[in-house]
């Protein structure tokens, strides 16, 4: 095959052709790279980002609102809130803190579950293992314990705030009741967790606690009218709680299931209702404009 010549008389062989093409290719890669590096400076414009967040993050009211409404985790909030309601002085932030502590407890609790066997042989040893050998195990257990205490405190103080600001009044009566049940569930969560280390502290606390169940009217074998209804230590309500007549292996397993699965599930459902009702009942209760006695219906 004879070499071809271009207009200037230069040879244009296969090699030259390849050179030319690779130079052009290099140009394209260079410009594309530059363009795309430029785009990286605005990550919120990328397809990946938009596929996750669905909206533009422009500084306008519409996008501000959408950033709340279009997000699964944020949409428990309304897009806009009463100006005064964002003040710390009204809510003291305690409901949110309680929920945050619940999340912390679920997280640390799941981590602890990786190291824990709810059996009489292993339970106490697992705690020793956690405290002495597992990396950050002691910190994990401490955080779980203290977050539980903090949550009980936060729940009580939240209830105190809701009462003092009169937030249980119409139309929020039902949500107050849900809140009371959530408080009870919080105490039960904490109490069932008390037995799990299988140490003297938990054992005797649960023994004292469940001994009271013996005296349940009608359902306990030492309670009023219990024996008349055929209650014995082997079929009464305490037996049902402990899975036996003494605090032993079955009680440990039952406490574990209640603590890790049943009560968190029930509490989650109630929490869902609680938050949903906060919104449906018109958002947080205040600070409302004050009313005067003269303005009430006689």
């Amino acid at each position: 095959m004879a070499d071809q010549k271009d207009a200037n008389g230069r040879k244009t062989g296969v090699l030259e052709d390849l050179k030319e093409k690779s130079r052009e290719f290099g140009e394209i890669v260079k410009t594309k790279t530059q363009e795309q590096l430029e785009e990286l400076k605005k990550p919120q414009e990328t397809q990946l980002y938009r596929s996750i967040f669905r909206i533009k993050h422009d500084e306008d009211p519409r996008n501000r609102a959408l950033s709340t409404l279009n997000n699964l985790f944020f949409h428990i909030h309304p897009a806009k809130v009463n100006r005064d309601a964002t003040r710390y002085g009204y809510t003291w932030g305690l409901g949110g803190i309680t929920f945050y502590l619940f999340i912390v407890l679920v997280f640390t609790g799941v981590m602890l579950m990786f190291y824990y066997h709810p059996t009489k042989v292993q339970a106490f040893r697992d705690i020793l293992y956690l405290e002495n050998d597992v990396p950050f195990g002691r910190l994990l257990r401490n955080m779980h314990r203290w977050a539980a205490h903090l949550m009980v405190m936060a729940v009580w103080l939240h209830m105190f705030r809701v009462f003092m600001s009169g937030s249980y009044k119409r139309p929020r009566e039902f949500n107050w009741c849900v809140g009371v049940l959530l408080m009870v569930l919080t105490l039960l969560l904490s109490f069932t967790g008390y037995l799990l280390p299988d140490d003297q502290l938990g054992f005797w606390a649960v023994t004292v606690g469940t001994n009271m169940a013996r005296a349940t009217p009608l359902l306990g074998h030492q309670g009023p009218f219990g024996p008349q209804l055929g209650m014995t230590p082997y079929n009464d309500v305490r037996f049902a709680l402990l899975g036996g007549s003494i605090v032993d292996a079955n009680a440990l397993l039952r406490a574990y299931i209640w603590h890790c699965i049943a009560i968190p599930l029930i509490a989650s459902v109630f929490m869902g209702v609680h938050f949903w009702r906060v919104r449906k009942d018109g958002g947080i209760s205040g600070p409302s404009p004050v009313m005067l006695e003269a303005e009430t219906k006689a």
């Binding site: 405290e131 203290w146 105490l187 003297q200 502290l201 005797w204 606690g209």
Partner: peptide, 27 residues
Amino acid sequence: ALTLNAPLEEPANASVTMNPAKAPWYF
């Protein structure tokens, strides 16, 4: 959590009564 350790007593023992045997503080 870094400064105070969660309590851990002896292993549960039904024959040794804690004195005082107390419920958790909230109860």
